[in-house]
Design a protein around this nucleic acid. Structure first.
Lengths: 139, 139
DNA sequence: CCACATACTTGAGAACCTCAATAATCAAGT
DNA sequence: ACTTGATTATTGAGGTTCTCAAGTATGTGG
């Protein structure tokens, strides 16, 4: 029954790399007084976005987003604003401080990421192509 | 200060692949009535292992493991057994049912993983080598 | 024996998550 | 208009995961 060893190996490696990346992300987040999920939400926020859209981005339940945004709002980083065309939806909008915090977060976490991928550009592109193949293997 | 676009791209791809893998893992876990963290702990468990070692494997606080193992014990999948040589440490040992559940979990999640990495073997090995380079870039 | 480190637990508090149910609104068909 | 049915966001209950600070029991080295 056993799966090809290479598959287990690949799975493991992907988790290791992702693990480091997210450890670095979370560390950067923690320095900015942001819990992981809130940081993740913040990092995807640029243009105003409906709650529902955020739920999709985070691959989680809508009711979940309520709590996360509560946190971000309590910290004064986003506000909920009623959408003009549909009174059911509320848009998440970055405050000044929210935008500043978001930029810091991205800056720091990407700086760490850059170190992880610090090898010749040809290899990086090759890695990108292979990973891309995995991703849209079944899109 | 902007990071090379390729780095952002790589980061994104790695997260996407890891995201799918862990979504599949969590789904398999959910079918077996296992919360994510408990499933992860279970999946790493084969030989008896001290709590502390488990904490290292999960990259989390020791006090955290107590709660996770409480869950696994409540479900009857592991037991804590005092280690012979050091009375401070407790070994996590799989029960019969625990071993069975663990095998099912690995079987199912690896089957999903195999589909993700279903492309020529030469490419898979290449991908492995590149990822390995990332991992021990700073080990 | 003493000082110190280590393994595990406990407790408080926050964060995160699922699920079921609700209120408000929209979109369509009738 | 008016009902039906979907959709958006929230709430509440309950469980899981996390951090952090303290505490207990045990090992180790001077």
């Amino acid at each position: 029954m056993s799966v090809t060893p290479i598959v287990a190996e690949l799975t493991d490696l992907v988790f290791q790399v992702a693990g480091r990346l997210s450890a670095e992300f979370n560390a950067a987040a923690a320095e900015l007084d942001l819990p992981p999920a809130q940081a993740l939400a913040l990092s995807t926020l640029c243009e105003p976005v409906p709650m529902r859209e955020m739920a999709d981005r985070l691959h989680c339940d809508a009711s979940n987003v309520t709590g996360i945004v509560d946190g971000l709002e309590r910290r004064g980083l986003v506000t909920r604003q009623p959408a003009p065309h549909d009174r059911r939806v509320k848009h998440l909008v970055l405050t000044e401080e929210g935008a500043r915090r978001r930029d810091l977060l991205l800056e720091r976490s990407q700086a760490e990421a850059a170190e992880l991928f610090a090898f010749p550009d040809a290899d990086r592109r090759h890695l990108r192509d292979l990973l891309a193949r995995v991703v849209d293997a079944r899109a």
